[in-house]
Design a protein around this nucleic acid. Structure first.
Length: 484
DNA sequence: ATGTCC
């Protein structure tokens, strides 16, 4: 592929916000000077390809941006909501991939003993289903109800706080509890796809997906928000990172192929032959949007069920008085319509988290006054963050980072990092050990912190650019990774 | 990310 270099880069209002002008248009990059200087030129090459899609109104990069298939992870791309385009490449293969945090009534001191952390991890392994060894978990669930109705498709027993409706947070403290769509698209789904997706419900999956037990460190400046959200220093929380498993995977793959062949017929294309897109109004564009929404339902329910299993394990270890209410569930891979000052727009976020500020009408009701929690995972063994949006996010359509951002490929990481180095970053063998469920660290070596950029630099870029603020830092005590 | 080749 031909190398495309930025013609000009102009700082906008601060050294943290850059407008990079390319032959096909411009991309706004939110990054501190150090991260900006270290960006791979390939991300600009990729931006230039994406800017060739007709009618694009805006493109932004978050500080954790890195090369992906067709489109960088860390992209926000915007079209008109009625006359625009949709691209599975700018959603990402794991449709609905996202984060969830639950608040417990336990304190860091309760988990001081490394043996107790080991017991907790073992118990979570017992309750958390694995696709490869199903033991009848969730046999009473109808997958069809789940993909059609999201959290509202679950029987009451899976809404753990449903017995106190006024205090229930399972259905209210989420980005969306149900995505509505034209359900006719489901008629064409193969039996095998239904079956596999049902077996995978409530499972973590591989790659960078995880469940972590963390302890909170509240940011002094935003303590009032933490308190309003029910968070306190040393509080134990459960953070979950997962997506729509093979349900969303097959939608991505099939729509990519179908769209690329339709594009050929219509004479559409960019310099990147893998970059798939079609007009929103095209039947295959409509098909993708509808199926994508079913995957957003699947992904939200999947994280909910992972939390349900972990809650069962916590109650097994700590007794029935152990609470685990939902703080929030939100996604970083999707496309949907949003209202703006200028009218309705169709926004893609690929590895970008929406962080709405206080008072924004897009907040779910419980978070209207404060802004909703924006959940940002760190790399394994490093801190994660709970943030809140700031008004300065408007220009970037309120998108912030989605994590540390990969610094090197999985294969390059495996060559660079030894198992001993990984073990030492997890403090294995010490009283502070971050207990991991996997027996062989080698199998998840490509997830070691050395594979990722420094999450603190990413967060500093987001706060420095005025996009969002840190409400709490989350220090990991134990991590559960999915099986390969 | 992933049914890592229906």
């Amino acid at each position: 592929m031909k190398e495309v270099l930025p013609i000009m880069s102009t700082p906008i209002s601060s050294s943290y916000i850059h407008e990079v002008k390319l032959p096909a248009g411009s991309v706004h990059v939110y990054a501190n000077p150090e991260l900006f200087a270290g960006l791979d030129y390939k991300v600009f090459n990729m931006a230039n390809n994406n800017l060739q899609i007709p009618g694009i109104q805006y493109m932004g990069y978050t500080p954790d941006v890195h090369v992906g298939i067709g489109t960088c992870i860390g992209t926000t791309a915007v079209w008109d909501a009625s006359a625009g385009y949709v691209s599975p490449s700018i959603v990402g293969s794991d449709i609905g991939c996202g984060m969830r945090v639950h608040l417990t009534n336990l304190h860091r001191d309760d988990l001081q003993d490394v043996k107790l952390r080991r017991k907790l991890v073992k118990t979570i392994e017992k309750y958390l289903p694995m696709e490869s060894q199903q033991r009848g978990h969730f046999a009473d669930l109808r997958l069809e109800h789940v993909v059609r109705k999201g959290l509202h498709g679950l029987p009451n027993k899976y809404i753990p706080d449903s017995y106190t409706p006024k205090k229930s947070t399972s259905l209210t403290h989420v980005e969306e509890s149900r995505f509505s769509f034209n359900e006719e698209v489901l008629n064409g789904v193969r039996d095998q796809t239904w079956g596999r997706a049902h077996r995978q419900l409530g499972t973590l999956g591989g790659g960078n997906h995880f469940a972590e037990i963390q302890a909170l460190e509240i940011d002094e400046e935003h303590r009032h928000i933490a308190e309003a959200w029910g968070m306190s220093d040393g509080q134990i929380v459960v953070m979950i990172h997962s997506g729509s498993r093979s349900w969303g995977g097959s939608i991505s793959q099939e729509s990519n192929q179908v769209m690329l062949s339709q594009m050929q017929r219509l004479g559409l294309g960019t310099a990147d032959p893998r970059l798939a897109f079609l007009p929103l109004a095209h039947p295959e564009g409509q098909y993708y949007v509808n199926m994508m929404y079913s995957a957003l339902n699947y992904a939200t329910v999947n994280r909910h069920l992972i939390a349900y299993s972990i809650r069962e394990a916590f109650r097994d270890v700590f007794g029935n008085g152990c609470e685990m209410r939902t703080l929030y569930d939100l996604m970083h891979n999707y496309a949907w319509a949003e209202e703006r000052d200028e009218g309705a727009v169709f926004i893609h976020r690929k590895g970008a988290t929406r962080a709405l500020p206080a008072g924004h009408a897009g907040n779910p009701k419980p978070y209207l006054a404060t802004g909703h929690p924006a959940l940002i995972p760190g790399s394994m063994g490093t801190s994660s963050y709970i943030m809140v949006g700031q008004p300065g996010g408007y220009d970037n359509y309120y998108s912030i980072c989605h994590g540390a951002g990969r610094a090197r490929s999985r294969s390059a990481t495996k060559k660079l990092v030894t198992v001993d180095q990984f073990a030492s970053s997890l403090k294995v063998g010490t009283a502070d050990e971050i207990v991991v469920n996997q027996r062989s660290l080698e199998s998840i070596l490509d997830e070691s912190p050395q594979a990722y950029k420094d999450v603190d630099q990413i967060i500093e870029s987001v706060t420095g650019a005025g996009l969002a603020s840190v409400v709490a830092k989350c220090k990991p005590l134990a991590a559960i990774k999915g099986a390969k």
